[in-house]
Amino acid sequence: MNIMTEQSLENAVGDKMNAKSNEVIKMRGDKVGVFYGDKQALFDVNLDVRLNQVTALIGPSGCGKSTFLRCLNRMNDTIDSARVTGKITLDEEDIYDKNIDVVELRARVGMVFQKPNPFPKSIYENVAYGPRIHGLAKRKADMDQIVEQSLKKAAIWNEVKDRLQEPGTGLSGGQQQRLCIARAIAVSPEVILMDEPCSALDPIATARVEELIDELRQNYTIVIVTHSMQQAARVSQRTAMFHLGYLVEEGATDKMFTNPDDKRTQDYITGRFG
């Protein structure tokens, strides 16, 4: 017992040390603003996303956290009235630059949505969808390999390996969400954006997805929007607090939840508003 505790303590400390030393900036937002028509939804957000860390975006509804998330892979482009100002970089490269192909960008920065949205196709085809359109597999065997690896990484392989040809819509909510994560992983993105991935799931499914997020951190950089303070505290290393379209405060999750600088963060975390 004692040894176990000591070991896990050591691991935790190791993690923290790693996190400290591993301060590579993967994505950087510089004075990001978003307009929907005439209405400004996001104001001058400066926020860094660090490599192989989970960055949680928190804040009350309508504070702009999802809007910011959708800027990171230009999903706001699909909304006709949306307009983005400022600069966002991925590996020092401006993603709103004219030379950037948005399709390529979205392959590098994948997205998992709030509500599980598997395509009305088989489980196999759901995962194979991305690799297929990007031509990642030359032969059927390669594709099988990618599908299996992705499903394994998304911790759903054991549950679906015997029914890969059944429709993805027939899975339970939590399984569907992990299928969507597998689908995102299949195109080997560098960054995975998650927009409240657990809001439509029950507590057990939520726990599985959170576990998964923690595992995925080894290979991917993750940005997650969440309404649950506990979830942010559990899965993230960095936390950013949004309010009314402004970034209120950003920092290491430990500090944010124990000793925030801003009173609004304190109030929100302790449930005094939001």
Binding site: T78, E104, R106, A107, G110, F119, R183
Partner: peptide, 17 residues
């Protein structure tokens, strides 16, 4: 549903794909 479009676009598919 819009979620289908978003899901596909979010994976880097073009509009016509």
């Amino acid at each position: 549903p819009r979620a289908m479009r978003d899901g596909s676009l979010g994976l880097g598919a073009t509009r016509s794909e």
